[in-house]
């Protein structure tokens, strides 16, 4: 039943976007934590230069799904998967697909701001350094470009050598976004990036996401439905490890085809 709805909504969603290419094609993905079947037969197609929101109640598998996209979920030793995730046409579960390579193409921003206990500069330069860039001038340029990209350059340009913990939580989160931008990714995954932030910082991050989608494909988990409605082009509604509905955000919020989606967005559960 889920599959039928998903197929219908995907074809509906792609009809007017023939020019855009898919970054991620998830095909019949299943994932288990030990015996806990956390993701069930997921089929999703994520388009480039769009913001795709993932919504759903706590524990429905949103974080698990997004962490599967860069294989971070494999840090949990009990995890087993089946099915395929094609990233730019190549299955990320292939034996010879290196996780390090995948993660340089796919940046991640986490729920809680998690800067390293280093200076702001060293935080942003971490990724480029890891990938072998030593030239100070190039690093300087990357740091400035990334901080500008994350709309925080003006706030921190005079204090690049201060510890990243000396700034506010909202600024820290934008440093973390800058840090993800510094590896020049293709996709940015965000797992509830504003849930630990105050309303003003949240607004800044939301504006930033709008700005970033010109250059990046963004997949954002949120349990805040207004946020999904405000910033995303497509929305996937997860429930108990399944995709109940995936469609244009407008459609999901104004005219959902599944009763459970309607119940969830009208606040009847979750």
């Amino acid at each position: 039943m889920t599959t039928i709805i998903t197929n219908k909504s995907v074809s509906g969603a792609t009809a007017d976007q023939t020019a855009k290419k898919a970054v991620y094609e998830t095909k019949q993905l299943n994932l288990w934590y030990g015996s806990n079947h956390a993701l069930k037969n997921i089929d999703l197609e994520i388009m480039e230069n769009e913001v795709t929101a993932i919504i759903g109640p706590s524990g429905c598998g949103k974080s698990t799904y997004i962490k599967t996209l860069n294989r971070m979920v494999e840090l949990v030793t009990s995890v087993k998967t089946s099915g395929e995730i094609l990233y730019r046409g190549r299955n990320i579960f292939d034996q010879d697909y290196g996780v390090e390579e995948l993660r340089t193409r796919v940046g991640m921003v986490f729920q809680k701001p998690n800067p390293f206990p280093k200076s702001i500069y060293d935080n942003v330069a971490y990724g480029p350094r890891i990938h072998g860039i030593k030239n100070k001038k190039i690093l300087d340029e990357i740091v400035e470009k990334s901080l500008r990209g994350a709309a925080i350059w003006d706030e921190v340009k005079d204090r690049l050598n201060e510890n990243a913990y000396s700034i506010s939580g909202g600024q820290q989160q934008r440093i973390c976004i800058a840090r993800a931008l510094a590896i020049e990714p293709d996709v940015i995954l965000m797992d509830e990036p504003t849930s630990a932030l105050d309303p003003i910082s949240t607004l800044k991050v939301e504006e930033l996401v709008q700005e970033l989608k010109k250059d990046y494909s963004i997949i954002i988990v949120t349990h805040n439905m207004q946020q999904a409605a405000r910033i995303s082009d497509k929305t996937a509604f997860f429930l108990n490890g399944e995709v109940v509905e995936f469609d244009h955000t407008d459609t999901i919020f104004s005219n959902p085809s599944d009763k459970r989606t309607e119940d969830y967005i009208s606040g009847r559960f979750g």
């Binding site: 840090l75 998690n114 590896i183």
Partner: peptide, 27 residues
């Protein structure tokens, strides 16, 4: 050492050894 720091490092494509040397040991 907080798990979030490891996640941040691995999430950027750092290897285990790079994460140990740059993040875990200093902390």
């Amino acid at each position: 050492v907080p798990g979030e720091l490891r996640d941040a490092s691995y999430g950027m494509g750092a290897t285990k050894w790079q994460t140990i040397v740059n993040i875990i040991l200093p902390a």
